[in-house]
């Protein structure tokens, strides 16, 4: 069907996402060709084309944001926002069931997760409570809201809720893949533009404030980007495991990287490795993709910890847990 005819017959959301559907078509054609060349069965299905694309995007944007979160000791915020995204999914399903709104639950999840992200910051600022307190409050509230909405309309909602809790390769629709591409573009572009400020705020919040960076705004930006990543990753990772992609590859990279720049790149490479291996193993092993991806990521983490220990034994002082430079070294710098 040509573009004008498609646009006339489609919903407003589809009309907006049409260029991305076209890109998805190209991607699918490429993977079909690759499947033909390599003989890989999993590349011969349209749903797997979308799942692989979503996985690859998650492998970039989750560690990209996770690097800033982990080093600010905010690793658990992903978990909190995933639970609120679950509430957002429940809101979408509820509205669709009750008033036949026809909205993607992932869109309502984006909205609820972003509002929740701002709520975490608001609670922290208004009550001077530690961030983990505000995260715990928002996490519990989000999950409670989700379970209540599902119980109100159990017949209509409970059927599909497992895919959101545990993720599912086969349920990534073209619409959801297109939404993820939008989220991917927003997250990557925002980090690319604000990388200097995000790094400064992450490393030394007070010095960043003194240098004129509006720290409060960047804190809010960071939690909102986290919300976008969480919703994007939820499709194949599921609510329960989504936070792992924000944390585990970053923790692995920190073991072996010698600089912030290299830790960012390494964490993306390791995340992509976990995603591609995880999807492959999950497909052929008929297991849940989210769980397998996390297990692969954790296995990589164990390897990097051992590699870091080995480097420190061999005397490479760039590894994370190497002892401090000796006084003799210090005197040479004077």
């Amino acid at each position: 069907m040509g573009a004008p005819a498609f646009l006339l017959q489609s919903s407003p959301t589809d009309a907006v996402l049409w260029p991305l559907y076209w890109l998805l078509g190209l991607w699918s054609a490429f993977l079909s060709w690759l499947g033909g060349v390599t003989g890989l069965e999993l590349l011969q299905y349209g749903f797997m084309h979308r799942a692989v694309l979503v996985g690859l995007c998650i492998g970039v944007m989750a560690p990209l944001i996770g690097t800033f979160l982990v080093h600010r000791q905010l690793a658990l915020i992903g978990d909190a926002l995933a639970h609120t995204a679950f509430a957002g999914v429940a809101v979408g399903l509820f509205l669709n069931a009750v008033v036949d709104l026809g909205v993607s639950p992932y869109l309502t999840a984006v909205v609820v997760a972003m509002l929740s992200a701002l709520l975490i910051e608001l609670i922290s600022e208004a009550t001077d409570a530690y961030n983990d307190v505000s995260m715990a409050i928002v996490l519990s509230t989000g999950f409670a809201l989700g379970t209540v909405l599902i119980s109100l309309n159990a017949g209509g909602l409970a059927v599909g809720i497992n895919q959101y809790l545990f993720g599912n390769l086969s349920t990534v629709s073209a619409e959801n893949a297109a939404i993820l591409l939008v989220l991917f573009g927003v997250v990557v572009a925002t980090v690319a533009v604000t990388r200097n400020q995000l790094l400064y705020v992450t490393f030394d919040e007070t010095a960043a404030a003194v240098s004129g960076i509006p720290v409060g705004w960047y804190n809010r930006l960071m939690v909102m980007l986290t919300a976008l990543v969480v919703v994007g990753a939820m499709q194949i990772m599921g609510v329960i495991l989504v936070a792992a992609m924000l944390v585990v590859p970053v923790a692995s990279a920190a073991q072996v990287a010698s600089s912030f720049r290299s830790s960012l790149l390494t964490s993306v490479v390791l995340a992509e490795l976990a995603v591609t291996l995880g999807i492959g193993v999950a497909y052929y092993g008929e297991a849940t993709a989210g769980g397998v991806i996390v297990l692969v990521a954790v296995a990589i983490y164990v390897v990097t910890v051992l590699a870091g220990k080995l480097r420190s034994r061999l005397g490479d002082t760039t590894a994370a847990d190497v002892g401090r430079i000796s006084a003799e070294d210090e005197s040479t710098a004077d």
Partner: peptide, 22 residues
């Protein structure tokens, strides 16, 4: 501004040059 220590985690992999670039 020079403080007692930066607020980042002790495991943050960041070089002296990257800090000075800030």
């Amino acid at each position: 501004y020079v403080a007692q220590q930066a607020s980042a985690s002790k495991e943050m992999p960041i070089t002296v040059r990257e800090v000075v670039r800030m």
